[in-house]
Design a protein around this nucleic acid. Structure first.
Lengths: 128, 128
DNA sequence: CTTGACCCTCCAGCTACAGGAACCCTTATC
DNA sequence: GATAAGGGTTCCTGTAGCTGGAGGGTCAAG
């Protein structure tokens, strides 16, 4: 299978698939013409990675997940630990964003938003 | 004032301050020895930028905010619009993260996390 | 005079790709 | 046989917002 078809099946751009080969996530064969030749397993792995990325795992975490995925003797505890670590990071990001959101929306409510120059947002950002 | 002192007063690393000069956010004078020489206004602007960044504004948004800050004839509507745009982006990020969080924490709850290889997390990521 | 704490510039690297140039391969059509 | 379209390939550059490090100059104290 050529890269275009794989892009459709995995939902990933061809560029991304080449990149994933570059960093060693997949190792497709090559045809006589130099084209990458993907088998079902490659596609499966790409879908796995795409899903993992969508859940917020970094590339390096995906790499470890893939290793665990292919290791049939793995312990689910290892997977769970990776997932929990990711969850913690997500929670931290959410907390940061919500804190920003609270301050920002408060300032927005205070600001008249008209033609006058007086602005609580700028006052707040610039206060000493 | 030298960069080290400014770093302390603004809470920004010296590296970051140099970077902000690089991209034209501030334009400190130079002493005879080549050292940057910051005045109170520079420090004030750096603090302004640091606060704006902490509220999630991008560097380019900070640049526009700074321009508005220094334009005493500005309309607060322009500031408010920038802030609202930022708020929208923050809300989108929060929504994305919460959606990830929901799926991920569900999978984590399902996973035994013991020494056995059976793992709902991997099953989910790898299902066709 | 030396030491150590500053300061300088410039280059590389980080994440996870995206865009584009310049070129090759295949197939269909005229 | 020429050509055009639509694949594919590599390689280089750029993104955001810094951070780290090499290799050097400057300054105040002892």
């Amino acid at each position: 299978m050529n890269i275009g078809e794989v892009a459709i099946q995995s939902g990933l751009p061809a560029k991304t698939i080449r990149y994933y080969e570059d960093i060693g996530l997949i190792k497709p064969d090559r045809g006589a013409n130099g084209y990458r030749s993907f088998d079902a397993k490659d596609v499966h792995k790409l879908i796995f990675v795409a899903r993992s990325r969508a859940l917020g795992f970094t590339i390096e975490q995906c790499r470890r997940l893939l290793t665990l995925y292919e290791d049939h003797g793995r312990a689910s505890a290892d997977v769970k630990q990776l997932a929990k670590q990711n969850l913690t990071e997500i929670d931290e990001k959410i907390a940061d964003l919500q804190s920003m959101r609270a301050t920002l929306s408060h300032l927005i409510r205070e600001c008249a938003g008209d033609q006058r120059p007086d602005c609580p947002i700028l006052n707040n950002l610039g206060k000493l």
